[in-house]
Design a binder for these strands. Structure first.
Lengths: 210, 210
DNA sequence: CGCATTTTTTACCGATTGGACAAACGGTAG
DNA sequence: CTACCGTTTGTCCAATCGGTAAAAAATGCG
């Protein structure tokens, strides 16, 4: 009997499948789908290639399981965006949550970045079926805030894009960020600097305050 | 004699090399370095694989020539950022130039995004030797503007990051942008919408103006 | 223990990859 | 015509790829 059948029956199967997905996240997020090899993932998971293929029937099956299991986590910060409460506070909290995601889950961020860069061949259906409705729903909330005069009149979709772009940048372009900022002096200064800057930018922009 | 020697002597060599680089930009920007194959590039360039290898000694040589030749173009908008003139006008112009680059050269943007995502293995030296000094120089200009009270007191490096992130997002994540925004109604509305939003964001932020 | 089931390893396969190489082609000057 | 030059093609190769098959080893269980 093959363990690659959907429901993970035994304890070992659950554990090994998790181990493989963890290793696959490492490799796929660094090399992209085509750049990654089963051998690399197997080695990162501490097992042989045929052994890995005992738990997942193919490279594609690993990738699918990985990216499908991650989308919910990835969209969680946006899901939390609520219409009650002060809009500026809500948006600031959303920006901070996304920035925390970029800090705590950079591999996940790079995995999605790679996927979208290649034209989202594996998750196009998910983008249309899950992402777009969610974004539209949250855009409606933003529109409500604008109508109520709580925030400036801006395009809600582009606002969401800009929050995505600026926060994920710190995960996806981490290499470049490190080169430009140089070696960090100590502590988690980098994160707080970015958070402070983004909050200032999104709240008040660059125009000098009197 | 092999044409892969650095200086392109004949007219045909210059033309064919350009043709190959153009095709390579197509393929590399869509598939990434490892995902691209010499065969794909050769076919896109309308020649056989051995013929292509007559003009470039290896896949890596194509990639190197491509990415090195592109860095200057890519950094041109930042180079134009000048200390004279109104800071807010200068920054707005820079944002618009970068956005135009994302619109007119999306393949170049994705090529760099892919490269940085993989940890910049081919251009790390260039990032340190060219990109970082340039960014530091421009950061000094921004600092001068802040000292003069011309713009709000923000971190210059994170400001540059945010401009890069928001503008390049429209090239790198084009697939996602298209899904979320749906089919465009007509004309080049998308670009103008993004430009208007970003200008508003960077100038005044989201806080409602009285 | 003995037996059945699950897990792991060894050996292997066909396809694709980057690349080498020599033969063949084509224009041009003598 | 011929010799020579840069160019192009056809053929081949070793390495690597995703994946399979079957034997061997662990493991769970009465």
């Amino acid at each position: 009997m093959n363990a690659a059948g959907q429901p993970a029956r035994t304890r070992i199967q659950r554990e090994k499948r998790d181990l493989i997905l963890e290793a696959a996240l490492d490799v796929f997020s660094q090399q992209g789908y085509r750049g990654a090899t089963i051998d690399q993932i197997a080695e990162a998971a501490g097992m042989s290639k045929p052994n890995l293929l005992y738990y997942f029937r193919s490279k594609d099956a690993i990738y699918q399981a990985l990216i499908h299991g991650l989308l919910d986590v990835w969209l969680a910060p946006l899901r939390e965006l609520d219409s009650v409460g002060d809009p500026l506070v809500e948006l600031r909290a959303y920006i901070r949550r996304k920035l925390e995601m970029a800090r705590d889950f950079p591999r996940e961020s790079r995995l999605f970045a790679n996927e979208i860069l290649q034209g989202a061949p594996h998750i196009m259906a998910l983008l249309e079926g899950e992402l777009k409705p969610l974004v539209d729903e949250k855009a409606d909330i933003v529109k409500g805030w604008i109508r109520a005069g709580k925030i400036a009149s801006v395009d809600p979709w582009h606002l969401i894009f800009s929050i995505w772009a600026t926060t994920q940048h710190y995960a996806d372009f981490d290499t470049q960020v490190r080169v430009v900022l140089g070696p960090l002096k100590g502590g988690d200064g980098r994160f707080e600097d970015a958070a402070r800057f983004l909050e200032g930018l999104f709240l008040d922009g660059l125009r000098p305050r009197a």
